[in-house]
Simulated assay, not measured.
Amino acid sequence: MALTYRWSATPPAGPAAPPDPRVLAQQAIAQMRLHAVSIGIVPEPRVGRVGVIGMPTWMWVQNPGPSTLGPITRTASAGGFSVTATAKADRVVWQMGDGATVTCHGAGTPYADSFGRQSSPDCGHIYARRGTFTVRATSYWNVAWSGMGLTGTIPLNFTRTTNITMGEAQVLTQ
Protein backbone atom coordinates (compact mmCIF):
# COMPACT_ATOMS: atom_id res chain seq x y z
CA MET A 1 0.00 0.00 0.00
CA ALA A 2 1.46 3.35 -1.05
CA LEU A 3 1.13 6.46 1.06
CA THR A 4 0.55 9.81 -0.51
CA TYR A 5 1.17 13.06 1.31
CA ARG A 6 -0.60 16.25 0.40
CA TRP A 7 0.06 19.75 1.60
CA SER A 8 -2.88 22.13 2.13
CA ALA A 9 -2.81 25.86 2.82
CA THR A 10 -5.79 25.47 5.18
CA PRO A 11 -5.98 23.04 8.06
CA PRO A 12 -8.55 20.27 7.91
CA ALA A 13 -11.93 21.07 9.39
CA GLY A 14 -12.29 20.08 13.01
CA PRO A 15 -15.41 19.88 15.10
CA ALA A 16 -17.66 22.89 14.64
CA ALA A 17 -17.64 25.46 17.43
CA PRO A 18 -20.87 25.56 19.43
CA PRO A 19 -23.23 28.42 18.58
CA ASP A 20 -23.29 31.55 20.73
CA PRO A 21 -26.15 31.01 23.23
CA ARG A 22 -27.02 34.73 23.12
CA VAL A 23 -27.56 34.47 19.37
CA LEU A 24 -29.86 31.49 19.90
CA ALA A 25 -31.72 33.49 22.58
CA GLN A 26 -32.24 36.31 20.05
CA GLN A 27 -33.55 33.78 17.53
CA ALA A 28 -36.01 32.44 20.11
CA ILE A 29 -37.17 36.01 20.81
CA ALA A 30 -37.66 36.65 17.09
CA GLN A 31 -40.00 33.62 16.96
CA MET A 32 -42.18 35.26 19.66
CA ARG A 33 -43.13 38.20 17.41
CA LEU A 34 -43.44 40.54 20.39
CA HIS A 35 -45.00 43.94 19.72
CA ALA A 36 -46.45 47.06 21.31
CA VAL A 37 -49.78 46.89 23.09
CA SER A 38 -52.98 48.03 21.41
CA ILE A 39 -54.18 51.03 23.40
CA GLY A 40 -57.56 51.00 25.06
CA ILE A 41 -58.44 54.43 26.47
CA VAL A 42 -61.45 56.51 27.44
CA PRO A 43 -62.01 59.07 26.08
CA GLU A 44 -61.74 57.21 22.81
CA PRO A 45 -59.13 58.46 20.35
CA ARG A 46 -61.64 59.22 17.57
CA VAL A 47 -62.72 62.39 15.87
CA GLY A 48 -65.57 64.00 17.77
CA ARG A 49 -64.81 62.21 21.06
CA VAL A 50 -63.87 64.61 23.83
CA GLY A 51 -63.13 63.76 27.44
CA VAL A 52 -63.89 66.11 30.30
CA ILE A 53 -61.07 67.55 32.39
CA GLY A 54 -61.34 66.54 36.02
CA MET A 55 -63.04 63.25 35.10
CA PRO A 56 -61.21 59.90 35.20
CA THR A 57 -59.37 58.70 32.11
CA TRP A 58 -59.09 54.91 31.91
CA MET A 59 -56.21 53.13 30.15
CA TRP A 60 -55.89 49.42 29.38
CA VAL A 61 -54.28 46.94 27.00
CA GLN A 62 -56.81 46.09 24.34
CA ASN A 63 -56.86 42.37 23.44
CA PRO A 64 -53.91 41.35 25.65
CA GLY A 65 -52.12 38.20 24.55
CA PRO A 66 -48.81 36.37 24.68
CA SER A 67 -47.19 38.65 22.08
CA THR A 68 -48.30 41.87 23.80
CA LEU A 69 -47.95 41.03 27.51
CA GLY A 70 -46.68 37.44 27.72
CA PRO A 71 -45.77 35.12 29.10
CA ILE A 72 -44.51 33.39 26.00
CA THR A 73 -41.75 30.77 25.62
CA ARG A 74 -39.84 29.71 22.54
CA THR A 75 -36.74 27.57 21.87
CA ALA A 76 -34.08 28.00 19.18
CA SER A 77 -31.61 25.26 18.23
CA ALA A 78 -28.47 24.93 16.13
CA GLY A 79 -25.81 22.24 15.87
CA GLY A 80 -27.44 20.06 18.51
CA PHE A 81 -27.60 22.91 21.05
CA SER A 82 -30.76 24.65 22.30
CA VAL A 83 -31.64 27.82 24.19
CA THR A 84 -35.09 28.50 25.65
CA ALA A 85 -36.34 32.04 26.27
CA THR A 86 -39.41 33.18 28.22
CA ALA A 87 -40.69 36.74 27.83
CA LYS A 88 -43.12 38.61 30.06
CA ALA A 89 -44.08 42.28 30.16
CA ASP A 90 -43.24 43.67 33.58
CA ARG A 91 -45.21 46.91 33.26
CA VAL A 92 -46.80 49.38 30.87
CA VAL A 93 -45.73 52.99 31.34
CA TRP A 94 -48.19 55.55 30.03
CA GLN A 95 -46.89 59.01 29.17
CA MET A 96 -50.08 61.05 29.21
CA GLY A 97 -48.92 64.02 27.13
CA ASP A 98 -49.49 66.52 29.94
CA GLY A 99 -46.24 65.75 31.75
CA ALA A 100 -47.71 62.93 33.85
CA THR A 101 -46.49 59.33 33.73
CA VAL A 102 -48.61 56.42 34.98
CA THR A 103 -47.08 52.97 35.57
CA CYS A 104 -49.51 50.04 35.40
CA HIS A 105 -48.80 46.39 36.14
CA GLY A 106 -50.99 44.08 34.11
CA ALA A 107 -53.46 44.80 31.35
CA GLY A 108 -55.66 47.29 33.20
CA THR A 109 -59.46 47.22 33.27
CA PRO A 110 -61.45 48.08 30.12
CA TYR A 111 -63.95 50.87 30.72
CA ALA A 112 -67.68 50.12 30.57
CA ASP A 113 -70.47 52.71 30.67
CA SER A 114 -71.77 51.12 33.88
CA PHE A 115 -68.63 52.42 35.69
CA GLY A 116 -69.83 56.00 35.26
CA ARG A 117 -67.52 58.52 36.91
CA GLN A 118 -65.48 55.96 38.87
CA SER A 119 -61.71 56.02 38.61
CA SER A 120 -60.01 52.99 37.07
CA PRO A 121 -59.17 50.42 39.75
CA ASP A 122 -55.72 49.79 38.30
CA CYS A 123 -54.71 52.17 35.49
CA GLY A 124 -56.05 55.68 35.27
CA HIS A 125 -55.30 59.40 35.13
CA ILE A 126 -57.11 62.73 35.51
CA TYR A 127 -56.36 65.63 33.16
CA ALA A 128 -56.38 69.13 34.66
CA ARG A 129 -56.33 71.14 31.43
CA ARG A 130 -57.96 70.95 28.06
CA GLY A 131 -56.22 70.19 24.79
CA THR A 132 -55.18 67.37 22.51
CA PHE A 133 -52.65 65.04 24.10
CA THR A 134 -50.36 62.40 22.61
CA VAL A 135 -50.52 59.34 24.85
CA ARG A 136 -47.62 56.85 24.67
CA ALA A 137 -47.92 53.33 26.07
CA THR A 138 -44.55 51.61 26.47
CA SER A 139 -44.47 47.96 27.51
CA TYR A 140 -41.28 46.92 29.30
CA TRP A 141 -40.32 43.26 28.95
CA ASN A 142 -37.91 40.94 30.72
CA VAL A 143 -36.76 37.97 28.67
CA ALA A 144 -35.06 35.21 30.67
CA TRP A 145 -33.10 32.66 28.66
CA SER A 146 -31.16 29.52 29.48
CA GLY A 147 -29.27 26.85 27.61
CA MET A 148 -25.84 25.38 27.04
CA GLY A 149 -25.08 25.79 30.75
CA LEU A 150 -25.65 29.57 30.69
CA THR A 151 -28.47 31.93 31.63
CA GLY A 152 -29.19 35.57 30.99
CA THR A 153 -31.81 38.28 30.69
CA ILE A 154 -32.60 40.62 27.84
CA PRO A 155 -34.69 43.76 28.45
CA LEU A 156 -36.98 44.93 25.64
CA ASN A 157 -39.58 47.65 25.22
CA PHE A 158 -42.19 48.55 22.62
CA THR A 159 -44.18 51.80 22.27
CA ARG A 160 -47.49 52.72 20.66
CA THR A 161 -49.08 56.19 20.58
CA THR A 162 -52.53 57.68 20.16
CA ASN A 163 -54.10 61.13 20.55
CA ILE A 164 -57.01 62.09 22.78
CA THR A 165 -58.84 65.37 23.25
CA MET A 166 -59.90 66.79 26.60
CA GLY A 167 -62.34 69.67 26.97
CA GLU A 168 -64.25 71.56 29.65
CA ALA A 169 -67.83 70.99 30.62
CA GLN A 170 -69.64 74.30 31.08
CA VAL A 171 -72.97 74.68 32.75
CA LEU A 172 -75.23 77.51 31.75
CA THR A 173 -78.04 78.65 34.03
CA GLN A 174 -80.71 81.29 33.55
Results as ranks from 00 to 15, higher is better:
Gly99Pro: 01
Ile72Leu: 11
Ala13Phe: 04
Pro71Leu: 14
Gln26Lys: 13
Thr109Asn: 00
Trp141His: 06
Ile164Asp: 00
Thr162Trp: 03
Arg130Glu: 03
Gly70Cys: 07
Val92Cys: 07
Pro110Lys: 00
Gln95Ser: 15
Pro121Arg: 06
Arg22Cys: 05
Gly152Thr: 05
Ile41Met: 04
Val171Glu: 13
Gly149Phe: 11
Gly40Cys: 04
Glu44Cys: 05
Thr138Phe: 05
Thr10Ile: 09
Ser146Cys: 05
Arg129Lys: 15
Thr162Asp: 08
His35Glu: 11
Ala112Glu: 10
Thr132Pro: 02
Thr134Pro: 01
Phe133Thr: 00
Leu150Met: 13
Pro21Trp: 08
Leu34Gly: 03
Glu44Leu: 15
Gly48His: 08
Ile126Cys: 00
Gly124Asn: 09
Arg46His: 08
Thr86Phe: 10
Ala100Glu: 06
Val83Ala: 01
Arg136Val: 10
Gly54Met: 10
Pro121Asn: 10
Thr151Ile: 13
Thr84Ile: 07
His105Tyr: 15
Gln170Gly: 06
Met55Cys: 03
Val23His: 08
Phe133Asn: 00
Ser146Val: 06
Phe158Ser: 11
Val143Glu: 08
Thr86Pro: 07
Trp58Val: 03
Trp58Pro: 03
Gly147Met: 13
Leu156Trp: 08
Thr161Gly: 04
Ile154Glu: 15
Arg74Trp: 11
Gly54Phe: 09
Pro21Cys: 08
Arg129Thr: 14
Thr153Asn: 15
Ala2Ser: 15
Gly65Tyr: 06
Gly131Arg: 00
Arg160Trp: 01
Glu44Arg: 14
Pro71Gly: 10
Pro121Cys: 08
Ala107Gly: 12
Thr57Arg: 01
Leu3Tyr: 12
Asn63Cys: 04
Asp98Ala: 01
Pro71Asn: 10
Val93Gln: 10
Thr109Cys: 00
Val50Met: 01
Tyr5Thr: 15
Thr101Gln: 15
Tyr5Val: 15
Trp145Ala: 05
